[in-house]
Computed example of a mutant assay.
Amino acid sequence: MPDDPNTEYLPIVEETASLAIRKVVTGRVRVANQTEEVDHILPTELSSVEVDVVRVPIDRKIEAVPDVVTEGELTIIPVVEERLVVTRELYLREEIHVRRVKQTETVEIPATTRRQTAQIERLAADPAPSINKDDLNDL
């Protein structure tokens, strides 16, 4: 049959599709950082101790040197002297009273900090290039 001249042939044609991928920019984003300074008032406590010194005259005869005594916030420091008499005698000349007075005060201290914020702006894409029919055939 293939050699028969009266035989007609019908060609079989098959189409194939191919796919090509290309990147196209569809949009852009611009990000800008901005730094700003923020002023704050920071509360804090400051403490101090005042010392009040009072001399208390005693002028009394004693047998031994007294110890330093602390009673709460009061410290008593004895001051003694020897006096020459026919015999030696101790006299408590005075006491020094030292009292501590604690004070607390709240103050506001200015301080500056920085922070950044980001501004995002969406931009349009560049116009898409036109596609020719010939370009599709090359794919």
Rank of each mutant, 00 (worst) to 15 (best):
M1Q: 07
T7Q: 08
E8I: 06
E8T: 01
Y9M: 09
Y9D: 04
I12W: 01
E14G: 12
T16N: 04
A17M: 08
S18P: 04
A20P: 00
I21M: 06
R22E: 10
R22S: 13
R22H: 09
K23M: 07
V24C: 07
G27C: 00
R28K: 09
R30K: 09
V38G: 04
D39Q: 07
D39W: 03
H40L: 14
L42I: 14
P43W: 01
L46E: 14
S47A: 07
V49K: 02
E50R: 06
E50D: 15
D52A: 13
V53C: 04
V54S: 01
R55H: 03
V56S: 01
P57Y: 04
P57M: 01
D59N: 10
D59T: 05
D59I: 00
R60M: 06
R60Y: 02
E63V: 09
E63S: 11
E63Y: 02
A64T: 14
V65S: 08
V69G: 07
V69R: 12
T70F: 09
T70Q: 15
E71S: 07
E73F: 11
L74K: 08
I76V: 07
I77M: 06
P78D: 11
P78E: 11
V79S: 07
E81D: 11
E82Q: 11
E82A: 13
E94K: 00
E94I: 02
I96K: 07
H97E: 11
V98A: 02
R99Q: 14
R100C: 11
K102H: 15
Q103A: 13
Q103I: 10
T104K: 11
E105R: 13
T106I: 06
I109T: 14
R114P: 03
R114K: 08
A118H: 07
A118E: 08
Q119D: 03
I120C: 03
E121V: 15
R122H: 13
L123S: 10
A124F: 02
A125H: 09
D126C: 06
D126N: 10
P127L: 00
P127D: 15
A128K: 04
I131M: 04
N132H: 10
K133H: 06
K133S: 09
K133I: 08
L136G: 03
D138K: 11
